[in-house]
């Protein structure tokens, strides 16, 4: 198994268990969507995998244990995009994206050709090449989200963790970002994205993991993982369905009777 493997991963915040023995395996080349109600443990799962929350259980990437390992090499292999982007300083767009190369050395005191290539590729991919010199603080919310995504792409990590990458984006940008994440996964990486929009999860993900109260309730292809039974039990809602590109897309209707 060359992808991401979690075995009985648990996270406890204070005394409260927020993630309970989650085990899953996704092969390289997979976009895994993580869905579930608020407080289900989605962000905790990402933070634990990123090495930001203490956890128990095992965690391997490409066959290597990445839980204990040195933070430097983990940072090269796992890129993390948090829910909210924060810029303390008015960096230029290119410099902001360059931060994604920090795990590979300090690109500012001597960017290698590899650093420059990765940054240019990330800027191009998100259509930011024309913005390179603009300060990030002068960008719109959507543009900033693209800069942050370019930053994680520039790391060129094997595993990309994205916490609600489509929040605060208009529908056109939501589709563009998910299309891009699917493309990135198809290059042989693993992308794990927390999504609140079940329709987007159903349309774009290769696999969907459903979390509920810290437990993994279902995992599999969207059609199976987002079945009426699972969705009803987890969200307490009744769903209608549309079919888009041959995929069954759930639409929440209201409380289940």
């Amino acid at each position: 198994m060359s992808g991401l493997v979690l075995d009985r991963l648990s996270v406890t915040l204070g005394r409260r268990p927020v993630l309970r023995e989650v085990s899953l395996a996704v092969p390289a080349g997979t976009l895994l969507a993580v869905v579930g109600p608020n407080g289900a443990g989605k962000t905790s799962l990402l933070r634990a995998v990123a090495g930001l929350a203490p956890c128990t259980g095992t965690l391997s990437l490409g066959g290597d244990d990445v839980k204990g390992g040195p933070s430097g090499s983990r940072a090269r292999r796992i890129a993390y995009l948090p829910q909210r982007s924060e810029f303390a300083w008015a960096l230029g767009v290119r410099d902001a994206v360059m931060l994604g190369r920090l795990p590979h050395g300090d690109p500012f005191s001597g960017a290698t050709a590899e650093d420059r290539r990765a940054v240019d590729a990330a800027l191009d991919r998100l259509g930011l090449a024309g913005f390179a010199a603009r300060p990030v603080t002068e960008l719109s919310g959507g543009e900033r989200a693209r800069v942050m995504l370019a930053r994680v792409l520039a790391t060129e990590a094997q595993l990309l963790l994205a916490d609600e990458p489509t929040a605060a984006l208009d529908p056109a940008h939501q589709l563009a970002v998910l299309g891009l994440l699917r493309q990135v996964a198809a290059e042989g990486r693993v992308v794990v994205a927390v999504l609140h929009d079940l329709a987007l999860a159903a349309r774009f993900a290769d696999q969907v993991a459903v979390l509920h109260e810290g437990r993994l309730t279902a995992i599999g292809p969207p059609d199976a993982a987002l079945s009426d039974g699972v969705l009803g039990a987890v969200f307490g809602l009744a769903f209608a369905h549309a079919t888009v590109d041959g995929r069954r897309v759930p639409i929440p209707l209201g409380p289940r009777r």
């Binding site: 933070s71 940072a75 810029f87 795990p103």
Partner: peptide
């Protein structure tokens, strides 16, 4: 610059 959490994820 990107916050403590991202800094940690970048290996700091």
């Amino acid at each position: 610059t990107l916050g403590e959490e991202v800094a940690a994820s970048l290996g700091t």
